[in-house]
Amino acid sequence: MQNKIFEGIASHRSIRKYKDQEVSDDIIHQIAETAMNASSSGNMQSYSIIVTKDKKLRKKLYPLHFKQSMVLDAPVLITFCADFNRMRKWVRQNRAPMNFDNYMSFMIASIDATLVAQNFALLAESVGLGICFMGTTLANAHEIGRVLNCPANVVPVVGFSLGYPDEAPEVRKRLPLSGVIHQEKYQDYTPEQVGEIYQERETLGMKRYSEVPELKKMMKKHRATNLAEVYTKVKYTRESHITYSQNVLTYLSEQNFMNHS
């Protein structure tokens, strides 16, 4: 089974190099309007989309996105925020109970934001634009939110660079379907199945990371001899993820998403 949607998704790749070419507001708005047809809990559309073109603002965001080159090289940054600020204002104006200030509301809004972000990304690619999702959006949500002037009940959760590609990297392999899909109920993995699922990823991943001088140096420093060690000793350490977790939880409280009463 093949059609343009299948072909478009199958050809996705992260773009980190962009042409010096403006992306018009008209194109962005057309993409956003269609992307908003994404499923949404209660059709509340509890998200906001921040389009950042200003170079001064992007320079402020650059270190917060761990100095990833596309923050400055791409003409646009798109940030999708979990947003119950707008909904709560509407609720207040209609003298209804002031809900949506709890963790469940944050999760609902985060899912809404992620669904519309994926729609936006697919639509952007369908008209010749390129994107690169940045996990730093959530990792540094507290600082990014302040730069983007996010009020209470608004938290950046998903973001990507956007522009016309100036590179054509190969499509990266994903895990085999047999390692992801479960029939009827979850079937836990045997050691043999885990080895088979990650076999190709191990080979390709180590080759890829070994070709990046900075990562190769880090791998040697931390004595990372396999891909699992690269992930846990170099890229996503326990210490870093605990720090990010604490930052996000603190920020959620500051942004009025942790009301337990």
Results as ranks from 00 to 15, higher is better:
256 N>D: 08
234 V>R: 01
42 G>A: 05
78 I>G: 09
14 S>M: 12
99 N>H: 07
30 Q>R: 10
254 E>M: 05
58 R>A: 11
129 L>I: 13
217 K>E: 14
232 T>V: 00
223 R>G: 12
135 G>I: 14
63 P>E: 12
167 E>L: 07
154 V>T: 06
189 Y>F: 07
261 S>V: 08
130 G>Y: 14
59 K>L: 15
187 Q>E: 14
79 T>W: 10
91 V>F: 11
216 K>F: 09
146 R>I: 12
123 L>I: 12
74 A>D: 15
149 N>E: 14
29 H>Y: 08
83 D>K: 02
29 H>L: 09
149 N>F: 09
229 E>T: 00
155 V>H: 03
101 D>Y: 05
104 M>S: 13
232 T>M: 04
251 Y>A: 02
150 C>V: 04
97 P>G: 10
57 L>M: 13
40 S>F: 06
177 L>D: 03
258 M>V: 01
236 Y>H: 05
194 V>Y: 05
5 I>T: 04
260 H>M: 13
42 G>D: 08
203 T>L: 06
26 D>A: 12
183 Q>T: 09
245 S>R: 03
247 N>P: 00
50 I>D: 12
213 P>F: 00
185 K>N: 09
12 H>T: 05
223 R>V: 00
137 T>G: 10
106 F>H: 02
194 V>E: 04
255 Q>G: 01
31 I>E: 07
193 Q>A: 11
4 K>P: 00
111 I>L: 13
71 V>P: 14
224 A>C: 02
167 E>G: 07
7 E>M: 01
79 T>M: 07
159 G>H: 08
147 V>F: 10
151 P>W: 01
